[in-house]
Design a binder for these strands. Sequence first.
DNA 1: CTTGACCTTGACGCCGGTGTCAGGGCTTAG
DNA 2: CTAAGCCCTGACACCGGCGTCAAGGTCAAG
Lengths: 134, 134
Amino acid sequence: MRIGEFAVRAGVSPRALRYYEQQGLLAARREANGYRAYEESDLRLVAEIRDLLAAGFTLEDTRPFVACLRAGHDSGAVCPDSVTVARRRLAEIDGEIRTLLTRRAEISAQLARACGGCAPGPAGRRPFDEGITR
Amino acid sequence: MRIGEFAVRAGVSPRALRYYEQQGLLAARREANGYRAYEESDLRLVAEIRDLLAAGFTLEDTRPFVACLRAGHDSGAVCPDSVTVARRRLAEIDGEIRTLLTRRAEISAQLARACGGCAPGPAGRRPFDEGITR
DNA sequence: CTTGACCTTGACGCCGGTGTCAGGGCTTAG
DNA sequence: CTAAGCCCTGACACCGGCGTCAAGGTCAAG
């Protein structure tokens, strides 16, 4: 199937697909006239890429996952390289969360200091101030 | 004092100071020859900007805080506009934290599914998996 | 006078994942 | 033949907060 239809079915733009190809993921076969031809199985690869991007991985990071699927595994995460990347990302996320919690506390304190009672907010009251492990 | 010395004392680059000025924060007086001349009090303004940037605010967001200090307040956060911005940022942070926690859980689950025992990680054991309010 | 340390403005580069346009080819229906 | 609707490649735009270089002015020390 050609890029237009494939893009719709994969839920991405043709531009994104060409970009993935340019980055060395998702190589499409070519028709005689030069048009890209995608296989059904490529849908799975794109889905993996999208999932990972949505999870905050870079496109670069998706490489081992895609390769893992291409190698015939049911999950893109079962290969050693994928695991390495996933663990690194997990550590990054933990760092980001810690940073955000610190910032949240600082801003919250600022608000409390600045105008006392008007601080917390309307709907969600103190979502993370308590109950944090460490 | 001129931009070079001021930059050192403020702990930022001259480039950053010119950028802040270009964005309409931190207007410096000019000497006869066109050189920028900063006051001691400007150090406080730059400090406020840096603190806020470090806390994840955009430069745009710092505007009301700086204006608040210029208006003579001891804290940049006591003015209504600052409070509004701070609360918005607080809500953004909460959203980001929730997003990250979700992602963390997904990746963590992926790892567990993919290779069972090899998942958690070496040093920090399950930093956020437990003890989350909601 | 010259050197050199400072200052000025203006403009391009970066990073990532696209959106979007330009300029052109293929193919099918009317 | 032509219009229309696909497809192709290449390249610029974006966002934010600067880094960095270019080309040139200022001023004090030697």
